[in-house]
Amino acid sequence: MRPGFGGYLRNALRGGGWLLLPVFVLLATAAWLPKLPVTRDAYDHLVIFDVSQSMNVEDYQLDGKPVSRLEFAKHSVAVALKNPKCDTRIGWGVFAGRKIVMLLAPVEVCRNYSALLEALSGIDGRMAFERSSEIQEGLLWTMINVRDLKPLPTVIFMTDGQEAPPLPPERVRNYDGQIGEVRGWVVGVGGDEPRPIPKTDTEGARIGYWRGSEVLQWAGAASSTGGTSHEHLSELREPHLQQLAKTVGFDYLRLVDSHSLDQALHDRKLSQPAEVETDLRWIPGGLALLLLAGWFWPDWRPFRRPAA
């Protein structure tokens, strides 16, 4: 007797064959499932680079060659952006004098990675729009300026902490905003050994080094704000930066190698829930694979003996 369609179907589903039905449905779901908005931890960073002349001191190494603090800071940002999840938005600005200039509002990293890298490479010491470098003022300005960005990003402030001219301790200001509203990290860039600061002209060309008599020195004992009697030399002024970070409620970290920034850029405290378009096809796809693999998994039972 020739079985009808029903017979074929019953035959197909018998002996575990019905498992193919969920497999089929799961694969069909995976094939048609669009990206869905899922609420996840997302990051929105604004990186501020100090572009003052002391940032040209070459006390970092990259591929065995000395590179400047600014170059190394840019390099670490580029490294940290590699293989991003699509949950990070980043933008940047530069700091000189007592102000910041916002260059790029935060944009999503994974769609714009190469364009972001190209833009990052354009940041250099020629952008220093003033010769001085008043870091306390710059940081406090940042806290105000950043509020114009919606959504409010977190701030990564990268500097060597050298106030030029030196900041007298009595001019240390308090932050009058609300601590914790703007969150972020102060990132200390530079080495421990005082090094001469290259002098550059407006086109960024090196014209020797700053001499002791050309800069304002800090007379008297070493100050809490980092002032020294060798202001023509530069090293990372860490205690001053730690104090500044504390003032505005930021965390502090030192840029030691190109992975130091990971801690700041992926700090869970800085994340905020955001709806991210997420590819969820792997869920039905993975389940289908699990069923298929389970179904075809070899059973190591011995041969059934033919009935004698």
Partner: peptide, 30 residues
């Protein structure tokens, strides 16, 4: 302002250009 700021070189990403234009409205005058 007192110095030129290269925000982006010729970019393929309209999103990045828009982010630069957005940022230009935020900075203080120089």
């Amino acid at each position: 302002g007192a110095a030129p700021f290269r925000v982006t070189p010729f970019s393929q990403s309209p999103e990045v250009i828009q982010a630069g234009i957005a940022a230009a409205g935020i900075s203080n005058g120089l």
